[in-house]
Design a protein around this nucleic acid. Sequence first.
DNA 1: TTAATACTTAACCCCGGAGTCAAAAAAAGG
DNA 2: CCTTTTTTTGACTCCGGGGTTAAGTATTAA
Lengths: 212, 212
Amino acid sequence: MSKISEHNRSLIIQAASEIFAEKGYAATKIIDIARHAGLPKPNIYYYFKSKENLYRSVIENVIDLIFQAELPLHGNADPATALEQYIYAKVHVSRRYPHASKVFSSEIMHGAPHLPEEIAARMKQQTLACCNKIQEWIDAGLMDPVDPQHLLFTIWASTQTYADFDWQIAMVSGKPEMSETDFDIAAHQLTQLVLKGCGVKPAEQVKTDLAV
Amino acid sequence: MSKISEHNRSLIIQAASEIFAEKGYAATKIIDIARHAGLPKPNIYYYFKSKENLYRSVIENVIDLIFQAELPLHGNADPATALEQYIYAKVHVSRRYPHASKVFSSEIMHGAPHLPEEIAARMKQQTLACCNKIQEWIDAGLMDPVDPQHLLFTIWASTQTYADFDWQIAMVSGKPEMSETDFDIAAHQLTQLVLKGCGVKPAEQVKTDLAV
DNA sequence: TTAATACTTAACCCCGGAGTCAAAAAAAGG
DNA sequence: CCTTTTTTTGACTCCGGGGTTAAGTATTAA
């Protein structure tokens, strides 16, 4: 794949992400993506054979970002640290890649008609791993016996909301868009809510316990 | 407005809600709504002049339901009771009117292009009232000093997620759909998370305090 | 019973957006 | 250089879905 091809492909994916996020799949016109990428329409068809195909490429791109954010829950950190990092990672995705978040949400909301089976399987499996990790913490007495799945749903929803419902947040708060600090405050407050709400022992406490 | 007109209108609104929720505005075909309502296509245009107009009617319908759920925060109950009822009301909307929830979310996610200015204003004003109420509780020492707006965002997101992301929840949990009990568990756990996470004093405590 | 109004229906129009194509231009390769 | 491959471009086709029309059939009102 030549330099120019690679460059144009990423230009198009980027533009497509934005337009798909803004309008949704059906309302998106290829020509709008083309204009936004500064290329003539047939180029889109040259690099990606169809609208459907382009959309799938965008989805794959987006999924990678989402999956990246799951990493903090797969290390060996204590629950307080892991959950804090997890929430920050999730909020970070909403801040840094709002388009990706919206495309993903939109896709899921409409029953994931374009999501490859294989990706769904990976999602399920990864979620299971997260639930197991949380269950371990519960069994070890490091936090209250909550339902891990519902806890995840709450974290997912609360963190993605800052990208997906940015319009509502802007309207309600009166600010046209959230600052870096606003995102940090949001992540911090959600972390506190989760840690305190689930009775998670602070990190030092855990170390001490294990040392004894 | 005759009996038959009223009946058909509500048939159409109902069918339209479902299809709009399932597919989104642009991907929805009027003929699908017609079929789903058991009526010929031109009837849709007879009762609602255009797709846009029908969609706006659906939105108004939907907004009413959403606004209904805000009521618990406007009474004089103590925070523990009010928040519990609020969360249950929100979850109830997701369970009972999943289509409404999705239509609303989809609309907001794409920048609310069809939402009348007047409704946005009501939303803002009502949110402000909720924030004030929470701030009062904080000032009265009935809960931790959290940011009321972010708390609301968390509650909105976490409750709506059960309607909006039902596909993901079904996939992850392995159950094709959530039972009544599942919804109750979800509402209960979220309530606990919020109450404990925000250090809300239990209802009895509040009464005692005021009595002293 | 009749006139007016409300509702239904089949057949139609039309536009916009997905997708194509063939020829030109530019890059790469020898 | 000339040849081959990649990329660009404007001008096209085609069709699906929004919206219309005009003629019909029920309902209502008096």
